[in-house]
């Protein structure tokens, strides 16, 4: 499988990365090189093989449903580019 410039632009939008016409053209070539490389996986007979879901066989750890942390709103917003009274500020979302 290979991608064209139109697909690259669509994927870039899905990934929320602005691309110029020039970027999109360059990326098309690069992505096709990588997709060409991974194509060889189709040779592998995977009938009856389950996809890996966990690299080490383990029970998912569970913890007690208790409040153990919190009350640190100021810490959480400390690195944000724009905040107001411990809220993150973003451009207007709803008209």
């Amino acid at each position: 499988m290979s991608v064209d410039v139109k697909t690259v632009k669509r994927v870039a939008h899905l990934a929320r990365i602005a691309v110029s016409e020039e970027d999109a053209e360059r990326m098309t070539g690069e992505l096709n090189a990588i997709l060409g490389f991974v194509e060889q996986l189709n040779e592998v007979d995977v009938s009856g093989v389950e996809p890996m879901t966990s690299v080490t066989p383990m029970e998912m750890k569970k913890r007690a449903d208790a409040v153990t942390d919190g009350n640190k709103a100021a810490d959480i917003v400390a690195n944000a580019p724009a905040t107001d009274e411990n809220f993150f500020l973003v451009p207007k979302v709803v008209e």
Binding site: I76, P81, V90, P91
Partner: peptide
């Protein structure tokens, strides 16, 4: 661009 690091402004949130 909301919670940490760099933010480049845009006309709406998606462009940002």
């Amino acid at each position: 661009g909301v919670r940490y690091g760099l933010r480049v402004p845009g006309k709406d949130i998606v462009e940002m």
